[in-house]
Simulated scan of single mutants.
Amino acid sequence: MKKLEGKIALVTGASRGIGRAIALRLAQEGAMVAVHYASNAELADVVVQQIRRSGGDAFAVGADLLEQDGIHQLFSGMDAALTVRTGGDQFDILVNNAGRGQYRTIEDITSESLDEVLDLHVKAPILIIQQALPRLREGGSIINLSSAVTRIALPNVLGYSVSKGAVNTFTHVLAQHLGARGIRVNALLPGIVETDMNADTLGTAEGREFAAGLSAFGRWGQPEEIAAMAAFLASPDSRWVTGQLLDASGGSRL
């Protein structure tokens, strides 16, 4: 039996990059997956179809998490799709992955740019968790995507780093708060991973040298490597793990 057989997962920002890899891996382990996307329905449908061709079950849910009613739209779509499939709105795994990079030093940050990065990486996942709680089954798993920049000082991503530091904090607090329900709350801290977000860095010889030099393994990461760790945190194998910040950076800057 697959480790996530009978489970239902919501992965935000799952149409590409790390989110896509996590959606595919959770489906491979037997979960039904809600593939959230912000604007590109076509890319999300590609992920859904790939899961279905592999014998899994998935559906897409669109919502712009930066819009005022975005989180309501997310759960309205999720509830409707699950009611058709299961007769209810309950699910088991929430992966807060949606995000975007932002390259600004302290000199370049504006009020608007700071609002954007904090709204997407802090405000949205907290409110998503709030709305998910009545729907999450006992013993469920919440996985938040943080970043290794919370322990590695990179001045050109200050706002992004601050937002991910907040992810670490609310992960810790909510693990304590939700422990009585058996809900595990953990965070993954990737380093540089080969995704669209890091295309500029990995698009130059200098950037590739920098990225490879960060890791103890002398290379940058792949989305599937982060997805493997997410699958562990989603599965019963991690039933005694909560409130943890799991470094997924290939030993960057040890």
Rank of each mutant, 00 (worst) to 15 (best):
residue 189 L to N: 05
residue 185 V to P: 01
residue 14 A to K: 02
residue 233 L to D: 04
residue 126 I to S: 00
residue 144 N to K: 06
residue 22 I to C: 09
residue 239 R to S: 13
residue 144 N to T: 02
residue 155 P to M: 02
residue 203 G to N: 04
residue 45 D to R: 09
residue 68 Q to P: 15
residue 244 Q to E: 10
residue 40 N to T: 11
residue 124 A to Y: 00
residue 87 G to S: 10
residue 86 T to Q: 07
residue 31 A to P: 03
residue 217 F to Y: 11
residue 192 I to H: 01
residue 159 G to Q: 07
residue 231 A to L: 00
residue 250 G to S: 01
residue 155 P to H: 15
residue 202 L to S: 08
residue 133 L to I: 13
residue 182 G to N: 13
residue 249 S to C: 15
residue 59 F to M: 05
residue 76 S to A: 15
residue 228 A to E: 12
residue 164 K to M: 05
residue 14 A to G: 03
residue 232 F to K: 07
residue 210 F to S: 07
residue 248 A to L: 10
residue 56 G to P: 11
residue 83 T to L: 13
residue 92 D to Y: 15
residue 181 R to D: 07
residue 164 K to I: 02
residue 47 V to K: 01
residue 181 R to C: 14
residue 51 I to C: 07
residue 100 R to E: 03
residue 205 A to N: 15
residue 156 N to P: 14
residue 226 I to R: 03
residue 127 L to S: 01
residue 72 H to G: 13
residue 89 D to H: 04
residue 104 R to C: 08
residue 40 N to P: 03
residue 26 L to K: 11
residue 156 N to C: 15
residue 52 R to D: 14
residue 157 V to T: 10
residue 194 E to T: 10
residue 7 K to N: 02
residue 192 I to G: 04
residue 178 L to I: 06
residue 65 L to N: 00
residue 144 N to D: 10
residue 107 E to R: 08
residue 207 G to C: 12
residue 72 H to P: 12
residue 84 V to W: 14
residue 237 D to N: 14
residue 220 W to K: 05
residue 42 E to C: 11
residue 114 L to C: 06
residue 214 L to E: 10
residue 135 R to Q: 10
residue 118 L to K: 00
residue 249 S to I: 04
residue 173 V to G: 10
residue 227 A to N: 03
residue 188 L to K: 06
residue 81 A to L: 12
residue 250 G to L: 07
residue 246 L to I: 08
residue 210 F to I: 03
residue 81 A to K: 07
residue 146 S to F: 04
residue 180 A to G: 13
residue 98 A to V: 00
residue 38 A to D: 10
residue 187 A to Y: 03
residue 43 L to F: 09
